[in-house]
């Protein structure tokens, strides 16, 4: 099941890149290209870690610790 989800994730990301690539090529800006692929990589890693159940602690846990340290 996990492998199926990983394959599905890869296919989705390829489709997303295929949809966006013509528009990004038209812009021909290195900055847009870099930011776009950085966001794609971040999204992919976040999703992959959750699928394989290796996601680190949620950022909400850190926020809760900070709030409890300051307020409570």
């Amino acid at each position: 099941m996990t492998i199926k989800l990983i394959v599905l994730l890869i296919v989705i990301f390829f489709i997303v890149i295929a949809i966006d690539m013509p528009y990004i090529k038209k812009k021909s800006s290195k900055r847009i290209f870099t930011i776009y692929f950085s966001l794609i990589v971040i999204g992919f890693i976040m999703s992959l870690l959750q699928i394989i159940d290796k996601a680190p602690e949620s950022p909400v846990v850190l926020i809760e610790k900070i709030v409890r340290y300051i307020v409570y």
Binding site: D20, I35, Y36, I42, M46, Q50, A55
Partner: peptide, 23 residues
Amino acid sequence: LNDYKPFVIPIVIISVSLSNWLY
């Protein structure tokens, strides 16, 4: 930059992924 449209789908993906991760 002068255009936000290239980043729509990656940002929505990150938001969806984060929503699943939060709680």
